[in-house]
Design a protein around this nucleic acid. Sequence first.
DNA 1: TTTGAGATTTAGGCTAGCCTAATGCCCTGT
DNA 2: ACAGGGCATTAGGCTAGCCTAAATCTCAAA
Lengths: 231, 231
Amino acid sequence: MNAATRSPQPPLTRSVEDYLKSVFHLTSQGGFATTSDIAEMLEVAPPSVSGMMKRLSETGLIEHVPYRGVQLTPQGRRAALQMIRRHRILESYLTSKLGYDWGDVHVEAEQLEHAVSEKLIERMADALGEPRYDPHGAPIPTAAGEIEEAELVTLADIAVGSSVVLREVGDENTERLHYLAEQGLIPGVQLTVIDRQPFNGPTIVRLGDGTTRVVGQELALLLFCRPVDGE
Amino acid sequence: MNAATRSPQPPLTRSVEDYLKSVFHLTSQGGFATTSDIAEMLEVAPPSVSGMMKRLSETGLIEHVPYRGVQLTPQGRRAALQMIRRHRILESYLTSKLGYDWGDVHVEAEQLEHAVSEKLIERMADALGEPRYDPHGAPIPTAAGEIEEAELVTLADIAVGSSVVLREVGDENTERLHYLAEQGLIPGVQLTVIDRQPFNGPTIVRLGDGTTRVVGQELALLLFCRPVDGE
DNA sequence: TTTGAGATTTAGGCTAGCCTAATGCCCTGT
DNA sequence: ACAGGGCATTAGGCTAGCCTAAATCTCAAA
């Protein structure tokens, strides 16, 4: 009997929870999460990642292919989704019930997600009416560990002339989020791409109210859209 | 320049926060907190406490008199009161806003108090209307670090025939708290001591509604009362 | 096919915080 | 006055998680 099949599991540490989340995000498009990508995301040195990957594969949370990278096992994925649910419910609660600005919730949720009980998260979810999306438009995994996989395209990829709905802002930076909110670029808003400058230049969009915005390439890559008609 | 005067302070660890809280509680009647009392309260071995006391006195949070015990410095007291404010605001919020039972809040708050920001605590306090007491009747320190020092007497010390108001339940045990709530023994209730059995036997009290309760010595020591007339 | 840049892993070391075992101090009771 | 019990401290060791430096692997380009 190896470590992966031993039971019951000890509770995960804060550090392990963070590694699992990183691997989840880095593998969301399929493939492997590399050591250096994880290191960069968590702001640790690459050897720290190698060491942790060793421990996590011994406990059966990830699959490690040496020199290639890692993927989550079903068990690791479950744990990661639980953390993401916690994070997004917390962000939603802080925004709806405690007057937090959507730019400030990420940092606070990042700390709280390691300390809250399942019970507390479910009470918050209940108080909010079981929200399906967080304040940035990201889907909230269910308590059962299912997450919506939507096909979203970044604003930078939308053809000139197309109309789309902004569904998700894939950013965590407080200042950028404040700026986007000022500009009215928040989930749910309808956009028409009326022009785009060449050489990865900015995209010019018209909002529902007829006003226009100039969105730089870097920001446009963080704005995920869906066709205006689809569900 | 020694460590105590160096600035700025690094953030306190979870462990340090717990030690400071313990010392605060153990010295609330004055005097020193002993190594073994702290060890028992935190469920660690006495040498772990000695080691931590060494570190904490180097950072100027406590005053350590070898073989005697420790006391908080003004700086340590400030940090301890901040943790107690966090804990009690959290307990109040969970009870008022998320439907927690007063027996269950302690465990949850114990985890959260290390993860919440000042900002979040103040938003919760604001949402609650700046409460002065937690669900168990314990006074909540102000954001400025002041705490009410009330002269309370345990029910076991109240003379037969006296009427008192139950002000605080000094317990954290879930089951005992559930039991007390069932019995109607919650802060604010008025009690008249109508009898007491000899040899540290139970106290018999009459509640406002005329019903009576038999309160064992052990529980009576946890029920803090004030005279019925005073503010 | 070989080579070398870049990524990864291994080696070795550090700190915080915990432990047990051994030692030292204090103080009371004889 | 001092012996001994009980508490506190020191000594020494462990793990998790981080680090830097050194060794190793991979793969693309020459």
